[in-house]
Every structure is written in C-alpha cells, then in structure tokens.
Design a protein around this nucleic acid. Sequence first.
DNA 1: CCCGGAAGAC
DNA 2: GTCTTCCGGG
Length: 241
Amino acid sequence: MKTVLFPDWAYKPAWSPGSRQVQLWHFLLELLGRNEGGAIGWGGEWGEFIIRDPERLARLWGERKGKPHMNYDKLSRALRYYYNKRILHKTKGKRFTYKFNFSKLILVNYPGYLPPSSHQQLVHRAPLPFPFLPAESGLPLCGGVGSLMDRAVQPLPHPFLLPGCLPKPLPVPQALHGPFPFISAPAHPAVGKTEPRESGLNVNGWPHRSSADWDVNPHISWNLLGGEKREDEDREGKDAD
DNA sequence: CCCGGAAGAC
DNA sequence: GTCTTCCGGG
C-alpha cells in the first residue's frame, strides 16, 4: 500500500506541547488553505507560494502573534530562518516567492509512524484521526484557537495535518520525473494484499495517493522521521545535465 | 529586495 | 527553540 505523505515538519501539530504559539509556517499554510485571497497564494510549482501583499500578510501575522509592529522585513527574516531548517526555500529571481520543501517526503502511516525496525507491522490504510470536513465548513483549517486541532476527538499519538492546507498539484504522475526526489515505501512482502480502499481522502485534493501511481526508483533512500539525509536539496527548473 | 549575524524576548 | 528586532551588506 505505499503511501506518500509529507515531511516530518509538516506533521508537527500547530500547537505542540513544547511551543504554545502558532508557528509561522502553520500560519502560512492556514492562509493558503483557506484561499483567503490577496495576501498570499500558491505559485506555479508544487509547494511554491507568492506573497502578493507583503505588508498585509505581515499585519495578519502580527495580529496572530500579538506583535503590532510586525512588518515584511521582520517576517521575511523569520522565513529566512526556515532555510536552514529545510522548511522553506527561496525561489530565486521571483519576488516574494518562496517554496515549501516538500521534496523530502515522509513515509508514515497515520496512527503513528513506524520505526524502521518494525515498519512491516501496521502497513495498512489508516484513516485520518479527525473527521473530514469541507473547506467551507467555517472552522479554521490547519490549527488555530478553537480549530479542529483543539477538538480532535481522540488523543492523537502523532502529529497530523489538515486537508486543504496544501497545494493540489500532481494532476499527472510526472511529478516524479521532475527534480523531486520523492520517496515512497518499498514493497513489503509481509503485507500481502492489503488494499482496502485506494480512494484515500482526495475529497479535498489531498495528495494522498498510492505510490503505485508513480514509478519510483526503489533504491532511493527513504528517510523516516528524524532521518536527515540531505541528498535532495531540490532544484528549480535547472537541473544538472 | 534579499541575505544572514547578533542580541534578546518568551 | 521560534521567532522579533535591528542592521550592515549585496
């Protein structure tokens, strides 16, 4: 069943036990997911976004954080700190354009990622721990006070994301042919056939697909949570030739 | 505009 | 640890 999901940082809840404040990338995802129009929007590339109104975005961010003097200069400094953390890249040459680092995909199954030693255990489809809801349901997506994050039904052992926060690209399987070193699960012999439903949860354009849709090099090293392989460092349009 | 060091808040 | 603030430099 091979499920391809998102990088480790993307699974950190907006309100992790350690940090009681919203994180900037969550905030950005929230705005992008809401398609709130104006301040920020998805760009052409997978994960790329463009800040259309920098000062307005800064004002919104400042309001969220209780920092009335926030501006784009300071916000962009925070974005720059994401470079080293490998959460963001700058799309060079394009003004106000950054890109989320979705190049490192994480292979996990929802009720908890599986450590490399025991990953053959729960290799079956796992439903999301929260009820689906359309983006129009009024509740804020991607966390925030009073959002789904707070009213999650069960204690969640693992961080999670909400649908609608991420771009919906990949109309075709050619994403893998690009510069993205996507990672997928190798075929596990122990699994047998466990494919209850491949529909997954595309209800919101959630890019949750079986990697069988894409032909993947099996020898790509797949790093799980905590793994820090840096073989990707994805490029834009210019690849080495 | 964009970059990152430095210091400090929390 | 995650920004916020300030800033010299390109």
